[in-house]
């Protein structure tokens, strides 16, 4: 980054629609968004407003119709599928609502998985994975399989998997959507720490105002249009 305060993520004039049969469904309409480095941003909005769509575009999982997304020095909207895959592997960490761990792998192996795409030796990979599990306080569950862990523990393994490659951005789509309050609290605290202590840029889609409150900034998406979270609608949510 050349300037300390410049935005890490720059989105300009972004349009996205889906085609269903011969019907075109506009989802995102002229989105512009800047996200600073080490930001912890919550993205809220009613169901079907396009939150997941926007998050997927920022994470390089889908192609835009029009507009640009620049992350760091890379304009990801001009990358090919293969280039995008490589870019994702080293720049983005993913946290899903349903954890999405691989059931036949242990916690440690799940965390190790993204490191297969790096040049690290087996020993190095193990060490990094173990450290990441320590970060989420699951070092004593390394050899457990996902089904032997609680939802909250699984989500913490998923967070370890997301950070193990040391990405710049973490994207989380309703990370607490499937968790009880205590587990959700733990997960949110972890994400906050990742942003504050480790300087990760965290973008989180959530329905949960409590979760949103943990974030430093909040954006609101309604029918594909992005606004600053209005005080009124925010309180209405509560």
């Amino acid at each position: 980054m050349n300037k300390k305060n410049s935005s890490l993520v720059q989105i300009r004039n972004l349009y996205k629609s889906y085609r269903r049969g011969n019907q075109i469904i506009p989802v995102l309409d002229n989105i512009g968004l800047d996200i600073k480095e080490a930001e912890f941003l919550a993205l809220m909005g009613p169901s079907g407003s396009g939150k997941s769509t926007l998050l997927n575009l920022i994470a390089g999982l889908d192609q835009v119709d029009r507009g640009t997304i620049k992350i760091g020095r890379v304009e990801i909207t001009s990358l090919s599928e293969t280039e995008l895959a490589e870019w994702r592997a080293s720049n983005v960490g993913f946290i899903f609502q349903f954890y999405n761990l691989i059931p036949v792998l242990t916690a440690l192996e799940n965390v190790e998985l993204p490191l297969l795409l790096t040049g690290l030796s087996r020993k190095e990979r193990r060490r990094h994975a173990a450290l990441a599990l320590e970060l989420v306080s699951l070092q004593d569950r390394m050899d457990h399989h996902p089904r032997q862990l609680s939802g909250g523990q699984q989500q913490r393994v998923a967070i370890a998997r997301a950070v193990v490659t040391d990405p710049t951005i973490l994207v989380a789509d309703e990370p607490t959507g499937d968790l009880d309050r205590t587990s959700a609290e733990e997960v949110l605290q972890l994400m906050e720490r990742l942003s504050v202590d480790l300087g990760k840029t965290v973008i989180m889609v959530t329905h949960d105002p409590r979760a949103a409150k943990k974030a430093r900034t909040m954006r609101y998406l309604d029918k594909g249009v992005l606004t600053d979270a209005p005080e009124i609608s925010f309180t209405e949510f509560l």
Partner: peptide, 13 residues
Amino acid sequence: AGEYAVFKTLGFG
């Protein structure tokens, strides 16, 4: 299918 999508998400080609 979901697991393979996760692999892809993580950048596996």
